[in-house]
Design a protein around this nucleic acid. Sequence first.
DNA 1: AAAAGATCAGACAAACTTGTCTGACTATTT
DNA 2: AAATAGTCAGACAAGTTTGTCTGATCTTTT
Lengths: 187, 187
Amino acid sequence: MITTDTSVREQIVSTADRLFYKQGYNLTGINQIIEEAGVAKASLYYHFHSKEDLCVAYLKRRGEKWSAMLAKYIEGVSDPKEAIIKCFECRSKYLQQNGFSGCSYIRIIAEMPQRSAKINKQAVLNKEKQREFFAEQVSKLKKVPGNSVKDFANTIFLLFDGATVQCQVYRELSPIENALKALKILL
Amino acid sequence: MITTDTSVREQIVSTADRLFYKQGYNLTGINQIIEEAGVAKASLYYHFHSKEDLCVAYLKRRGEKWSAMLAKYIEGVSDPKEAIIKCFECRSKYLQQNGFSGCSYIRIIAEMPQRSAKINKQAVLNKEKQREFFAEQVSKLKKVPGNSVKDFANTIFLLFDGATVQCQVYRELSPIENALKALKILL
DNA sequence: AAAAGATCAGACAAACTTGTCTGACTATTT
DNA sequence: AAATAGTCAGACAAGTTTGTCTGATCTTTT
């Protein structure tokens, strides 16, 4: 049995997630969220103290969505080289499915230069998780190009973010293809 | 003799440039711009039909600023390898001087998912100019790593954008350092 | 049955948004 | 001297924003 709490809260977060990501944080009003979520304004402010808090929940949700998608995509893959490539391919699918809206953490920071501590923390946390994924895979490689594991993981991370934002700007997947080409030469 | 036209218009654009880049486009109101520029509202709308048009002028201005800074930075450098590295070093300086506000073109696109044609055009134009810079330098290299000139220029471009957005997110210059490390291995 | 928790619709406040318009004034050009 | 172009301060319109509050209603727990 689903308690009403979870259902209403969930409805709010999933609607905010969709709208913030599609329209941007600043261009999405509370009123639109409650309308499309089909909940009362008082309910939203019962669950979230402010729009800012809802934003943190949104970022968390985005991180979980991406992690789940990636985990499923590399399920059973033991070769680190393949896992890294698959991660980029997964990103390609993700961007395509989400209308080339880029990285939600980067975007929220681009939208709010006067970053609130809460939002900044969540965004950086999510980004670090991705860096750690690459570091873990690179540490499993037999031969690491260049100097160190850390450096090579950072290089991949740069290609990953570069490709993500360029896909957003150009609204096409070619930057991911470019990153894959670079990766295949490096690996 | 400076005509009043240039002076007022210039005052508007330079103030908009400063505020849009620092605070973000959506969080900067017309009223703040005219107040800080010291001009009347009617003057702003005399020179620019809308905030959107002012935004295009802002992007143009940003592009010119960056180009001028880069040109000065690589003045007299004939070695393409050195020019590429210097471009990244210049970016480091640029970000430091501008409070780690990232790339204005990427940011404006992050802020306005419903991209107006005018703004999108200017942003992509500016981005393409940067890609061409790398392509030109790479074409001058004696030995190009990987397959083609175009591919290698794109790889550098990915590292460049990746480093720029990561510097913005983390508010530090280490991503540029990481990109330089990667470059020195690749070149 | 009573208390506590969750939800509803919507009014309201106070502030802000872009853009228009008025009417006067100054500077430049013809 | 007359016409044109540029600038001024500020009121105004019509709409938006986040967040609060009211008061009723429903659900769950004690």
